[in-house]
């Protein structure tokens, strides 16, 4: 059985995306741009890209920052005991039904408290073999598109590299996906420049 990395549970969801929450001590696993999945049943799961991770403050935290120094115990109390989850915003980019991957918006969103998992390298390679999912990212209004694309390509590129010894045709995946992004944004010069600027940092 594949080792599944749980990164949180669903707080709220819609067709185009969902918000997952996790405790601060679960924050090691999820990262910006990571591909995640939310299985709803044995044969149906939704894929998404993390486009925002934020931690809200509250009155107590704002007051604590005015003190001279915050002790380790107070920091741990706030991170581990107070009910302030880290929230991850996830953009829906496709789904899998009965073993087949679709780069369409999912027919049904995940439900409250559904577990969210980080995709392993194999899942990443399977999902990103074709590039239809990129249009969801490029059309996202509230996400930093360039940064999400760059972070995703960096992480997915590593997954492809890891899988390269397993009879997977990994040659030039990063070049191919970059070319796809350029093609999709050929009529949107400002966004294209923004994305290429971010991609330049990972090349």
């Amino acid at each position: 059985m594949n080792h599944q990395i749980e990164i949180g549970r669903l707080l709220r969801a819609g067709t185009t995306g969902f918000i997952a929450g996790c405790r601060v001590n679960q924050l090691d696993a999820p990262s910006f741009g990571a591909l995640v999945r939310a299985p709803l049943s044995d044969s149906y799961q939704i894929y998404g890209l993390i486009h925002d991770i934020h931690i809200d403050d509250d009155g107590l935290v704002r007051q604590l920052v005015t003190a001279d120094g915050v002790s380790d115990e107070v920091m741990k109390d706030n991170r581990e005991r107070r009910i302030v989850p880290v929230e991850m915003s996830v953009l829906a980019v496709g789904y899998e039904q009965d073993g087949k991957i679709f780069h369409l918006l999912p027919p049904r969103p995940p439900l409250s408290l559904d577990m969210i998992y980080l995709c392993n390298d194999k899942d990443v390679v399977r999902f990103t073999e074709k590039f239809g999912y990129l249009r969801h990212v490029l059309n996202a209004k509230d996400a930093p598109i360039g940064e999400v694309i760059a972070a995703h390509i960096l992480q997915a590129g590593k997954a492809w590299k890891m899988e390269s010894g397993k009879h997977v045709n990994t040659e030039g995946w990063i070049e191919k996906v970059t070319q796809e992004v350029i093609t999709l944004l050929r009529d949107d010069y400002p966004t294209l420049m923004n994305v290429l600027g971010a991609l330049a940092d990972i090349s």
Binding site: L60, Q63, L64, V65, T66, A67, D68, V70, S71, V74, D77, R81, R82
Partner: peptide, 18 residues
């Protein structure tokens, strides 16, 4: 009380209340 910065009150009492 010093832990609560500008409005001194025992931190643990506030947390207990919360």
């Amino acid at each position: 009380c010093r832990m609560m910065g500008s409005k001194p009150y025992p931190y643990l009492l506030h947390r207990a209340h919360e």
